[in-house]
Design a protein around this nucleic acid. Sequence first.
DNA 1: TTAAGAATAGCACAATCGTGCTAAAGTAAT
DNA 2: ATTACTTTAGCACGATTGTGCTATTCTTAA
Lengths: 216, 216
Amino acid sequence: MPQKNLQPKRTKSELTKATIVGAALDLCAEQGMEAITLQAVADRVGLSKSGVFSRVGSREALQAEVIDEYDRRFLAEVFVPAMQVPKGLGRLNAIVRRWIERARVVEVNNGCIYVAGAFEFDDREGPLRDLLLRGVQGWRAVVRRTIVQAVDAKDIAANTDPDQLVMEIYALMLGMYHEARFVRDARAADRTHSAYERLIQTYAVRTVKKNSVISH
Amino acid sequence: MPQKNLQPKRTKSELTKATIVGAALDLCAEQGMEAITLQAVADRVGLSKSGVFSRVGSREALQAEVIDEYDRRFLAEVFVPAMQVPKGLGRLNAIVRRWIERARVVEVNNGCIYVAGAFEFDDREGPLRDLLLRGVQGWRAVVRRTIVQAVDAKDIAANTDPDQLVMEIYALMLGMYHEARFVRDARAADRTHSAYERLIQTYAVRTVKKNSVISH
DNA sequence: TTAAGAATAGCACAATCGTGCTAAAGTAAT
DNA sequence: ATTACTTTAGCACGATTGTGCTATTCTTAA
């Protein structure tokens, strides 16, 4: 028995499957989850429709793998490197900066499956929505935790509501996608960045404090 | 010749057509533009598929009319009443307040076709995208003009970039939809409102840097 | 080379889509 | 009631969807 290397990709089929998932991800990013059709994916990778089907099991399974794959890439590009920055506002800024940057270079051209997916599945139940929501919630939990750490480090105001700030940052990113992909304004990334700076400043600790009554 | 009254609804067919458009709008708001299918609309209004078809001409024509109809309702509920408030920050606040309120009571339950449509058609060309974009741009122009008037009235800072503020407000609303419909957090409207207050405060004119805040 | 097995293609299937065409039903004026 | 006309239903069409089943092609071990 050849006992191929179990580390990376075992059989060839898994390699073509990875190709399939990649192509499906592109398709999805461009035109949404519903655009992942067996025929479209087959055309894109140069296989037959049943060839694709036999590899992925079902359409929904393929969609689910696309979500997983996107998750991995996003976290590897945004989360992982930002974790090398020390806890506090610096790390939060790093997250947002990398998030914007990734949105600018990849997702403005390709689209973000979470943004598109969220509005596509907001009223539809099912395992795909659950997967999407799980991913979103997981990422928001990361951002939230980072905010709490920044509060602990006294980098931002003690009375900060983490969930509120999470939502405001998330809203900014949604606005960036909208501005870039629908309105097609090239200044979207810059606007988003300056909006974040304006936003985070309102949460900053008051150096020359404004005489707040509820301080203590 | 009967010369029916040309003012409101002439023939009966136009009345059923209005019913059709209304049903299609509901469908669209719930599940997106793509959910407007002749069969689904027919079921909803109790007609046959070809009955619906003969009334609307084509599927795309129906979708276009849905967009128009939504436009009318939105402007009647948000734009028109806000115009009764005098120019300046007060009017801008009125717009945003009504916008949030409408989003809370109707669109959180039903969905907003512009939000869903924008992310559905961000990569798709065609007359439907053009219509959607025209509506969005028109509304943004209204908001922008109101902002400029508020600057002129010295209600907000003179160096305000109107387009930037438009985007930030729009992003907030996108965030609200996401929070309410996808994440399904009931506090979405409140969060959005307080986010707006925080945001607009950063654009406020610095009078005597103390308690110059909101209150309009 | 051959034999075994994995990977892909081909084809059929029931649904569903939008859209014509034709017949039936409904409505209103004479 | 009859006529003229509008409004709706019925049916067929070609495409396209996801998914089984079967046959073919390719890969690899002996």
